[in-house]
């Protein structure tokens, strides 16, 4: 994400830092660049600085140091022109009291400066599209989580934005609504740039092609999701075996004798293998396959254990924490 000229980038931050009243360091020295068409998944634990970063990118907060540029221009509280090209969904969106979806979307469209002949048809289409037609005249205050999420989606699309910033869009949704939201993100990703923050790593894994990992306000990784997964230590495998129980037990004993494995467990016919850190997994597994063949045990399935993105994320955070005082210096890999 680093070769595009600055003017063509959708989002660019440089040493972005946010301190709240000199009491809390919410974001520390974050530098990232986002190209058009990227779907960036923002990962991090609670309090890692995800929402602060998104609020800085929308001009709701002002940076203590550094800057954030959106579409090549510095973002600030008065950057209304830039925000006209952004669709934002906050975590647990709140709505003004007493409004209906129609009055709310009309108000939002007017806040974007859309004239009546544009905003009226657009809001009607969006209400229909997000399946709120039956509730379009009802007051929002009594809406369920799913309905408010759909309304928030409609509000974020009313200005036909080029950049979508969605802060935990699947938060509090039931499985069906969550699935719909993820499918929608995938479709929107075909023509828009998206930044999606989520606690749910499988969501990020499914819809994003890039990832940024924040830990204690610091950006510890920013790059493609593939690269992030590539950094994962692949040292935990599970194999489902088929064959005579005695043969399986004999093979397991032989595998335990191999020096490459830290832990070898057999539960029923499932073999669990933990490799030592420094071992090359292909050669170690070749040894296992050889033993299985010698003992006439066949293989039903083999898999690398652990949700890949989740494992990669946890590995990154663990690695960052283990650097101790060396964290003063940016890790080049980030």
């Amino acid at each position: 994400m680093a070769d595009t000229p600055s003017s063509d980038l959708v989002v660019e931050t440089f040493k972005l830092t946010k301190l709240y009243r000199n009491r809390l360091i919410a974001l520390n020295d974050v530098t990232l660049r986002l190209e058009p068409g990227c779907v960036l998944g923002l990962l991090g634990a609670n309090g890692a600085g995800k929402t602060t970063l998104l609020r800085l990118l929308t001009g709701l907060h002002r940076p203590t140091a550094g800057w954030a540029k959106v579409f090549g221009k510095k973002m600030g509280p008065n950057s209304a022109d830039l925000r006209r090209r952004i669709g934002y969904i906050p975590t647990n969106p709140q709505f003004p009291r007493g409004m209906t979806p129609i009055t709310y979307l009309d108000y939002m469209a007017r806040l974007f400066g859309l004239p009546a002949d544009v905003r009226k048809p657009r809001l009607a289409s969006l209400i229909r599209a997000v399946d709120l037609l039956g509730a379009s005249g009802h007051v929002i205050d009594g809406f369920s989580n799913g309905m408010t999420a759909r309304l928030a989606v409609a509000a974020s699309l009313i200005n036909e934005p080029d950049l979508l910033i969605w802060d935990e869009p699947t938060h509090g949704l039931d499985p069906e609504a969550r699935r719909s939201m993820l499918d929608l993100i995938k479709e929107l990703a075909r023509e828009k740039t998206l930044i999606v923050s989520s606690h749910n790593l499988s969501d990020i894994d499914e819809v994003c092609n890039h990832a940024a990992v924040l830990s204690h306000g610091q950006l510890i990784y920013c790059g493609s999701l593939q690269d992030l997964k590539g950094r994962m230590r692949r040292n935990h495998f599970e194999m489902d075996l088929e064959g005579d129980q005695k043969a399986v037990a004999k093979a397991t004993t032989a595998i335990r004798a191999l020096p490459d494995f830290k832990v070898v467990n057999l539960r029923q016919r499932r073999l669990e293998l933990y490799l030592h850190e420094e071992v090359v997994n292909t050669s170690a597994l070749a040894g296992v396959f050889s033993i299985l063949t010698d003992n006439k045990v066949s293989l039903v399935s083999v898999r690398s254990v652990g949700q890949q993105t989740e494992q990669a994320f946890l590995d990154l955070v663990e690695k960052e924490e283990s650097r101790g005082f060396a964290r003063i210096y940016q890790d080049e890999a980030a």
Partner: peptide, 21 residues
């Protein structure tokens, strides 16, 4: 959002719009 295609159609219907500042 059962009709996601519709959301996309609305989102993709892009014509230059004169903004009233």
């Amino acid at each position: 959002m059962k009709e996601r295609g519709k959301v996309m159609e609305v989102a993709a219907d892009k014509k230059p719009v004169s903004i009233n500042r």
